[in-house]
């Protein structure tokens, strides 16, 4: 019997020795985010019934401030959390947002966002859970930009919005390059599930950067198949915001333009329609 107790003690001692001998702390420094010429598109997957999503939005808003506006955030409502409440004023889910979610893949959990259309490390899909956002955004920002985008919006005499976008290619590019244009709206007050709220639902939640319309085809509009270094490309598009039924206040709208190649975002820029 004593021998067996000795074995048990020896087994414990072995683990204790291993435990106490492990001084393998990882040294690292805390840093603050740095912004550069590269901007990052964050497509946040949301739904008015998603109780964790407001925390995700709060995190993104804070990151947007920390990264000095290098982030361009779009919130699109799709998936099973996106069915409106019977008391909801709006239905932010549209055929286009449903199609976009099918294209990008449904998240395994919420909050979730697609960062610069790069694949999530933990799976094969694009959506990433919030505990990887800071590092993914930081990695995407550290990339040397391949394109520079300049946007200009003009309100025409007939109160249409004219968006002029000018691209400067910073390196030679072969293969199809696509342009994508989203129309967003801020300041929409409506119901939203929120884990932090005592009732679980906030009646007057402010929904910002909500994707209202994908102006280009969902896979983008082809710009060309080959671009030389320092080549420029300029184009424009004119929109009658009143023609979109789901736009509530045109003054709260903005447009974002992002360029993709091989389904990855190369650069993104945002312009308010009524700055």
């Amino acid at each position: 019997m004593n021998k067996q107790i000795s074995n048990l003690v020896a087994f414990f001692l072995l683990f204790f020795i291993i435990l106490t001998s492990c001084d393998d702390k990882v040294e690292y420094d805390l840093i603050r985010p740095e912004s550069g010429p590269q901007k990052v598109l964050v497509e946040e997957v949301s739904g008015v019934r998603c109780p964790n999503c407001p925390d995700g939005t709060r995190l993104l808003d804070a990151l947007q401030k920390e990264f000095d506006s290098s982030l361009v955030v779009v919130t699109f409502h799709a998936g099973s959390f996106s069915f409106p409440y019977s008391e909801s004023k709006y239905d932010f889910k549209t055929d286009q947002t449903v199609e976009l979610l099918q294209k990008l893949g449904s998240p395994l959990g919420y909050p979730a966002a697609i960062i610069q259309r790069t694949k999530a490390s933990q799976g094969d899909g694009y959506p990433q859970l919030s505990n990887t956002w800071s590092s993914s955004i930081s990695n995407a920002l550290s990339v040397e930009p391949k394109i520079k985008i300049n946007l200009e919006t003009v309100i025409t005499a007939d109160e249409h919005v004219k968006l002029i976008y000018n691209l400067l290619f910073l390196e030679k590019m072969d293969g199809p390059v696509f342009t994508n244009i989203y129309l967003l709206e801020d300041g929409l007050i409506d119901y939203q599930a929120d884990l932090r709220d005592d009732n679980g639902v906030v009646e007057k939640y402010e929904h910002n950067h909500v994707l209202k319309q994908i102006i280009t085809p969902i896979n983008g509009e082809i710009l060309g198949n080959s671009f030389d270094i320092l080549e420029t490309y300029t184009d424009s598009i004119t929109l009658d915001l009143k023609s979109y039924d789901n736009i509530e206040v045109p003054q709260n709208t903005s447009l974002i333009v992002f360029i993709t190649r091989d389904d990855k975002v190369l650069q993104v820029e945002k312009a308010y329609n009524y700055p």
Binding site: V26, Y28, D29, L30, I31, R32, P33, E66, S121, N131, T132, S134, S135, S138, N139
Partner: peptide, 12 residues
């Protein structure tokens, strides 16, 4: 480890 550091290095 790199993935973890990438994330927590931005903590306050």
């Amino acid at each position: 480890i790199n993935d973890l550091v990438d994330e927590v290095q931005y903590y306050f």
